[in-house]
Design a protein around this nucleic acid. Sequence first.
DNA 1: CGGCTTTGACCAGCGC
DNA 2: GCGCTGGTCAAAGCCG
Length: 320
Amino acid sequence: MDYSSWVDTSLDLNISSIRVKSEAPVDAGRSGMAKELKPTFMDFQTKPSSKEETGALVEELNRVGEENRKLTEMLTVMCESYNVLRGQLMDYMSKNGEKDRLAPSKKRKSESSHNNNNNNIAMNGNSESSSTDEESSKKPREEIIKDKISKAYVRTEAGDTSLTVKDGYQWRKYGQKVTRDNPCPRAYFKCSFAPSCPVKKKVQRSIDDQSVLVATYEGEHNHPHPSMEATPGSNRSLTLGSVPCTASLASSGPTITLDLTKPKSSNDDKSSKPRTDTPEVQKFLVEQMASSLTKDPNFTAALVAAISGRMFQQNNSEKW
DNA sequence: CGGCTTTGACCAGCGC
DNA sequence: GCGCTGGTCAAAGCCG
């Protein structure tokens, strides 16, 4: 089930149509409904409404309202499916984690095995962090760090060319490279919040969708999340482990970026699963999603338009 | 002036 | 062994 692409198209319909109404730039070709609505709203703004136009508008509004209702239901289904998939994923990872940890000794081969693992399950975080203490004690520290790899997908503004992912941590860029498989340059970051923090981050635009930044985190922060200390509430991140857990919603479509990072092994050796299935975490995730929605100007505009549409509809039904 | 970014050079792993 | 590639270093420049 590919819910991400499904939501991307579906939810964008309303957002784009609202943009038309507010005369904001429209992503060309993204939404057939936007094209359909554009003349309707423009006519409404330039000409006094006739009965036919009003009827068409009412019909359109009813259709949009119905679509909003469907989208709400779809979102609910998607969240439920996500929870089910997450549970299945955790079961799978706990069963197959042993195999995945058998990485070759060579550096690049081990990385490619990590990447394959992460590509298959993009929302998964440190799957290998569940390694036993015996294995951890055998490995050099650097290899242990490299095992803590996770990916995060962050959608950015269309015109945003910077390779920055705001996750609450302080990063210092130490390199940039154009890789063979992706014409977009890859940026290399080190955590600069704490001098001894070994965490590195690679950020590169997705080859499929260049508005999406793919951030690959390596290692585990040995310091608290900066936002927890300095600027609480300054970002949208939740730290569950080595890397932040983010739920982001951007203008061109919702990108739910989840990083099911396992808790630090030093603190949670007893539990092999991350605590993402607890009611508290689920509640927080829902709040994060809701917060992301309300912070998104397009969603706000869509909401305002929907409400005003309803009011307009009511006014019309009173007048006519 | 200190911290950060940029960018070319360098190094090491990997495949042939 | 050699070339390709990804990752890192470090000097120079920029900026607040």
